[in-house]
Design a protein around this nucleic acid. Structure first.
Lengths: 162, 162
DNA sequence: GGTTGACATTCCAACGATGGGAAGGTTTAG
DNA sequence: CTAAACCTTCCCATCGTTGGAATGTCAACC
């Protein structure tokens, strides 16, 4: 089986298969006389395992450990469970982070009229919401925030940023 | 004010300030005779704005648009709100993705004994859980590809993956 | 034979946003 | 004078994945 067939059969792109081989997640594939990689059903099986693990969000190092355990008949299910638990903990941290952002943004959006007028609590929050409080005398700092800055501060930033 | 002061005052690292300038998110800073970048209070104000937006998870292109609106006295709050809504939608998509992973993993972990034995529903799921079912007639495809390639499939994957 | 199309190979670059470090110039304090 | 603390630019790394270019190979068709 060539890499294209293995890719279709496993759901892992050929690019990724080569990448996984390069970083050592899977063993180097055997080669035909023409240097094409050859895959067996067992290899496809492994690739499907990896793909499923990737779909569940496991990192490459974690997947490496899972594959090792998978191949080890003397493994303890506790070791597998520990990797999963570690991953779940990371996911939950990330979810909480994102949820905090959503909560803050929805609160701001709720207070924003969303009409043609320029007044906007969202921008007001961004402007002054999270000063890292370098000094306690923030109030006296800038009597006039922007303006001034001739030759700068006005233009750019927009458009084809990316 | 040099970049170090601007960094401390804004909470944006000097590295990031230079990066934002390079990609066009902020205008090129004025330079002193010694080529050092010079920042005004207004610049720091902008950097704080950017930092707060970054903390809320906005992408660089989104931040570019927000800064443009912020500077535009004729802006509509609806435009700002639209960017926020777009971002919130993206966050929610991501949260749902992660929550689906957590749900699947917790279900598997719940069924895993987590003891010294090798039996493990987590590995069983990874092994067979997500076959993409490519075609029904995989078997008849190719009688013998070529070169045959014994001497594989067993080793590696483990160890210094990372 | 020649040509075309679908494969395969390698290498290089990019994305988000950020950090790290090298190699060198400048300023400031002792 | 010297050492520390800045600043500058440039390159590299992350993480997982995709894209492309340039080249090689194979199969089929005319």
């Amino acid at each position: 089986m060539n890499i294209g067939q293995a890719s279709k059969a496993s759901g892992v792109s050929a690019k990724m298969i080569r990448y996984y081989e390069r970083i050592g997640l899977i063993a180097p594939a055997a080669r035909e006389a023409n240097r094409y990689r050859v895959y067996t059903e067992a290899d496809v099986h492994t690739l499907r395992f990896i793909r499923r693990a990737r779909d569940l969000g496991f990192s490459i190092p974690q997947i490496g450990r899972l594959v090792s355990l998978w191949r080890d008949p003397k493994r303890s299910s506790a070791d597998v469970k520990a990797i999963a638990a570690e991953h779940v903990a990371g996911l939950k941290r990330k979810i909480q982070e994102l949820q905090a952002m959503v909560a803050a943004l929805e609160d701001l959006a709720r207070r924003c009229h969303g009409d043609h007028r320029p007044e906007c609590p969202i921008l007001e929050d961004l402007e002054g919401g999270a000063a890292p409080a370098p000094e306690p005398d923030c109030a006296a700092k800038r009597a006039r925030p922007a303006a001034s800055g001739r030759a700068r501060a006005a233009g750019a930033t927009a458009g084809g940023v990316r």
